[in-house]
Write a protein that binds this DNA or RNA. Structure first.
Lengths: 204, 204
DNA sequence: TTATAAATTAAACAAACGATTAAAACACTT
DNA sequence: AAGTGTTTTAATCGTTTGTTTAATTTATAA
């Protein structure tokens, strides 16, 4: 439990920022949680905002790199979709509170994301690969002709990431525990893949 | 601009709470926006929290009643799905900031939703109608055999509501304006209906 | 008009906030 | 052991927060 104090500040800050958001997390919260003097937080990280930015960027990069490694032109479109759904089903199972953090913090300050545009170029690149692969598979007759593969990708991401945004709603509404919820999500994962499989199957 | 002061406080509070969330909205913000003395806010509504609850409940009720009126056993499953997608595509177009407000405030305090369980009974009722209608249409051979119609409903809701949670992300990533965004959403609406149409079409 | 209640205000409360200061404790080299 | 730079601390700064007080204005009724 000794450990480097700087590290434990980051650890506490990450946990609290993700759990309660920027506004609801105070520097005193962080200091107390890390078992460290308040002034030390400002000593290492000059301000609350810069500490937050550190954690924010860290998370965005992780998320974008995940989407990148799952999409490849060596895959079929169906495979790309399956991997995407899999990753974005499993990732929030491991980090249950991450998605709503992302959404809300971006929502409140979209420009912060724009400043990370360099990393987003990789994201855009992955999108292009997905679209090109889909066009290729359309020409091959492997999948149905669709207007805009970008919308398809968007729909895949939408449907896979939403449960974890709405987790508290779902858990409360249907009155289920964490284990049941995760089982529900895994079952749903197969179902979603099935939906896109059937949808993309070219009509005879 | 005269109007009842109590009403204009509610109006300002609603706008600010939705826009900035609970924590980032101060009583002084609200008072100034409503052009009213600070103490008057506490005079009419005893505390910040109870003022927030008022608005919160109002919004939840609106949202749940919308889902209720779109689902009916007189519809086919395809119709139920189409109406749902339509409503939840159009609703956030009119109230762009509503969805992320809902998600985040529920996320931070799920128990607040539980206390509205009476209203949620109506929601549950609508869910049951959807499921029964789906089972009926399965027996009729109108739609494909599916394991769990609840998951289907859940997927429909997921895919239709997500764009507005991610609106700032999308707008920034793809660098588009509001009009283009709305057009994109409307186009996508047809696409989504199409996906479920094809998916549910019973295999010969 | 006068009495009574409701609406509205200025002022202040204690508590919490992010940030800074200046001093103390520590680690390290010479 | 003395000196030096880094790490850590207690204390405090000026603001902002939600809420309350007590006084004042306005509306209502007798």
């Amino acid at each position: 439990m000794k450990k480097n104090k700087k590290e434990s500040i980051i650890k506490s800050a990450r946990r609290l920022f993700i759990q309660k958001g920027y506004q609801s997390t105070s520097m005193r919260n962080i200091a107390k949680d890390a078992d460290v003097n308040l002034a030390l937080v400002n000593y290492y990280f000059n301000s609350k905002e810069s500490l937050f930015d550190l954690i924010y960027n860290e998370i965005i990069e992780k998320l974008l790199s995940d989407i990148q490694i799952s999409i490849s032109e060596d895959n079929t479109t169906i495979e790309n979709i399956s991997y995407l759904i899999d990753i974005y089903t499993e990732l929030p199972i491991k980090n249950p509170e991450l998605t709503s953090f992302i959404f809300f913090e971006i929502y409140k300050n979209p420009s912060k994301l724009t400043s990370k545009i360099i990393k987003i170029e990789h994201f855009q690149k992955a999108i292009n690969i997905f679209i090109q692969t889909a066009r290729r598979d359309m020409n091959k007759g492997l999948i149905r002709q669709i207007d805009d593969p970008g919308i398809l990708l968007f729909n895949v991401l939408s449907i896979s990431i939403v449960p974890f945004l709405g987790k508290p709603i779902i858990k409360n509404t249907f009155n289920i525990d964490d284990k049941t919820f995760i089982a529900f999500m895994r079952k749903r994962k197969e179902e979603i893949i099935n939906i896109f499989n059937i949808y993309l199957n070219p009509p005879k």
